[in-house]
Design a protein around this nucleic acid. Structure first.
Length: 512
DNA sequence: TTCCGACAGTGGGGTCGCAAT
DNA sequence: ATTGCGACCCCACTATCGGAA
C-alpha cells in the first residue's frame, strides 16, 4: 500500500467531526489492507509508530526538505527506513539521523510529509487514536467492539490484536487472555473535588491512600519477576528491591498493581521528584538504590495462581490481595459504608495528608478491574491550593488554539515590587476565555516575537495548583505543580496579587 | 430530550541518558 | 564540564460525539 493513501485517509478523518464517520473511514482502509501491510498500517492510522519513539523530534523535523512531485513511497518501505533510523546510535548519530530523515522526507510528497511529521512527533491531530482505531477494526472484521477492546487491553497492544483479527477473524479474540508475564493496561481513576462527592457517587466504598510515586504492575512466575510502568515499559532492571519483595511473597504466580515510592529514614515519603529520579536512573542502579531506596506498595491483584481476577468485584480481589501481600506492603485503607459515613472518609484523608501523602483514591467495592479505562469506579481526591498571580506573557497556541494566546506565563509579586515567574499554564480556559484573553492581552502587549507575547504585568488571574516543587528553571527556585486557570480577577490590581514569600510560607516542606 | 461517559487535544515541569560543543 | 534534545514519568481541563437515561 502507498503511504499517500494513508495520508489521504488521515486527512479525511481529521476533516470529519462525526466519530461514526471517522470509524467508517478507518474500517474501509483496514478492509483493503494486505496482511503484510497490517503491522504498519494499523499503528500508523492509530497515530503511532510500531517502533515506538525514534529519538527524532522537532529539532530535526523542522528542517524543510523539498517534497517529491509524485507519490511513490510504500508503507513498508517507510517502515523499513524508520526502523533503520531508530537503530542509529553513537558518535555522529545526530548527523546521520538528520540525513536519513532528510532522505525520507525528500522522497515524500507535501501531503505525505505532513502525515509523516505527525507520526514521528506523535501528533497526528486527526481526532482518532487507539479508541477509534479499535472501533474501525471491529467494523472491518465483523467482531464485537467490546471484545476487540478487551483483547487490546489484555495484549497491551492494538497491533498484535489487529494482526490476529485480520488474519483469522473474530475467533482470534479468544487467544487473548490474561497471562502472567504479559503486561495489561492499568485501570485509571477519575477526579472528584471532595471526599463527600466521591462517597456520594460510589456508596459503599474503600478509601485508600494515594502515594505520589510511580505506578507499577508486578508479574511473578516462579523466580521470574517483571516490573512494568503505566505505559507497559519494562523497568525490572532498575528496581531490584521490587523483584526481591515479589519473590518473598507467599504465592509464586501472580500479577499485582501498585505504586513504587521512596521513604526517607524517618519513614516519610520523599518528594515525587526524588522517587521519579531514582526510577529513571539506569546507569548505576546499585548506587541509586543505596541513595534512594524504593518500596513497592500494592493495592490490587489481577491474577493469582491460575485465576484471572479481573472480573471479580474489588472487595473479592482485595481479599485475595490480603492473602498474598502482608499489610506493610499494602496501601492503607478505610472502609466506608456510604454517604452517611463521610466523616470517616474525611478523617482518613486528613490522616493520609498528615503522613505526607498526596491524597486518597475512593473505590467502589463492587467494581471489576477495568483494564485500560478511566472508569468511574475509582475517584481520586487531592487537596487543591489557589493563588492570585499576574500574567507576565502568553504564547500563541497550536492546533485548535492557533491564532489565540494560550499558554500563560505566571508571576508572583516580589519584595522589590517586581514579579518572579513561577511557571506556565494552558489549562482551565474555555473557548470564550481564550477569545477574551487574546484580545485583552493584545491590548497590554509590550512585544511579540512570534511565539511569546510579553505584556504589561497588570492582569490578575486565579490559579489552582496541586503543590510546590523545587525548580532550577525559575527565579524563585520553585514552581507550581499542575497549575490551571480558575478565573480572571478583574476586580484585583497587580499590587494585590500573592507574593513569593506568602507562597513559600504556605509550603514549608519545600526547601529551596 | 437531556445527561453523561469516553476520547482527543493542548500542552505543563522534572529527571535521566546521550551526543554535541 | 556544560548544553541541548528527546523520552518518559507525573498530570488537569475543555469540547465533542453518541449512547444511556
Amino acid at each position: 500500500m502507498l503511504l499517500s493513501r494513508l495520508a489521504e485517509v488521515s486527512r479525511e478523518v481529521a476533516a470529519t467531526a462525526a466519530r461514526s464517520r471517522k470509524t467508517a473511514l478507518l474500517a474501509d482502509l483496514f478492509r483493503e489492507t494486505a496482511p503484510d501491510d497490517v503491522p504498519v498500517v494499523i499503528p500508523y492510522l492509530a497515530g503511532r509508530l510500531p517502533q515506538g519513539r525514534l529519538g527524532v523530534g522537532w529539532k530535526v523535523l523542522s528542517r524543510p526538505v523539498p517534497p517529491a512531485a509524485a507519490a511513490a513511497l510504500t508503507v513498508r518501505e517507510v517502515d523499513a527506513r524508520l526502523t533503520e533510523l531508530g537503530k542509529v546510535a553513537g558518535p555522529g548519530s545526530q548527523a546521520e539521523r538528520t540525513r536519513l530523515v532528510g532522505a525520507l522526507m525528500g522522497a515524500a510528497t507535501a501531503a505525505e510529509q505532513r502525515f509523516l511529521l505527525g507520526l514521528i512527533t506523535g501528533e497526528v491531530r486527526q481526532g482518532a487514536l487507539d479508541a477509534v482505531a479499535v472501533e474501525g477494526l471491529a467494523q472491518a472484521t465483523g467482531a464485537e467492539a467490546a471484545g476487540v477492546r478487551r483483547a487490546v487491553m489484555l495484549a497491551g497492544s492494538l497491533q498484535t490484536v489487529a494482526e490476529a483479527l485480520l488474519a483469522d477473524g473474530p475467533p482470534a479474540l479468544a487467544r487473548f487472555r490474561l497471562t502472567v508475564g504479559r503486561p495489561v493496561l492499568p485501570m485509571l481513576a477519575h477526579t472528584a473535588s471532595s471526599v463527600a462527592e466521591a462517597v456520594g457517587k460510589l456508596g459503599t466504598c474503600a478509601v485508600e491512600e494515594k502515594l505520589d510515586g510511580i505506578r507499577v504492575q508486578v508479574h511473578r512466575d516462579g523466580d521470574a519477576v517483571r516490573v512494568y510502568t503505566r505505559t507497559l515499559d519494562d523497568i525490572t532492571d532498575r528496581l531490584p528491591e521490587v523483584t526481591a519483595a515479589a519473590r518473598e511473597l507467599p504465592g509464586d504466580r501472580f500479577i499485582l498493581d501498585g505504586e513504587v515510592i521512596s521513604f526517607d529514614a524517618a519513614g516519610r515519603p520523599r518528594s515525587f521528584q526524588e522517587t521519579a529520579g531514582r526510577v529513571g536512573s539506569r546507569t548505576d542502579v546499585a548506587k541509586a538504590a543505596r541513595e534512594v531506596p524504593v518500596s513497592p506498595v500494592f493495592f490490587d491483584v489481577l491474577s493469582a495462581g491460575d485465576h484471572d481476577l479481573l472480573d471479580l468485584p474489588f472487595a473479592d480481589r482485595h481479599t485475595e490481595l490480603a492473602r498474598l501481600v502482608p499489610e506493610p506492603m499494602r496501601v492503607r485503607r478505610a472502609l466506608v459504608s456510604g454517604p452517611g459515613d463521610t466523616a470517616a472518609a474525611e478523617e482518613f484523608l486528613a490522616a493520609t495528608l498528615r503522613r505526607g501523602h498526596e491524597g486518597v483514591v475512593v473505590k467502589a467495592l463492587d467494581a471489576p478491574y477495568s483494564a485500560g479505562r478511566r472508569g468511574a469506579s475509582w475517584l481520586k481526591v487531592k487537596p487543591v491550593h489557589t493563588l492570585d498571580l499576574v500574567v507576565l506573557a502568553a504564547e500563541w497556541g497550536h492546533g485548535r488554539r492557533t491564532g489565540r494566546l494560550s499558554n500563560l506565563h505566571l508571576g508572583a509579586r516580589t519584595r522589590d515590587g517586581g514579579f518572579a515567574m513561577l511557571g506556565k499554564t494552558f489549562k482551565g480556559m474555555t473557548d470564550a476565555m481564550l477569545e477574551w484573553q487574546t484580545a485583552r492581552l493584545k491590548e497590554l502587549e509590550v512585544s511579540d516575537d512570534g511565539g511569546v507575547v510579553t505584556v504589561r504585568p497588570s492582569l490578575v488571574v486565579e490559579i489552582a495548583y496541586d503543590g510546590l516543587q523545587r525548580s532550577s528553571r525559575y527565579p524563585a527556585g520553585v514552581t507550581l505543580r499542575f497549575a490551571r486557570v480558575v478565573r480572571y480577577r478583574e476586580d484585583k490590581r497587580p499590587e494585590e496579587a500573592d507574593t513569593v514569600e506568602t507562597l513559600l510560607a504556605a509550603h514549608p516542606e519545600v526547601r529551596r
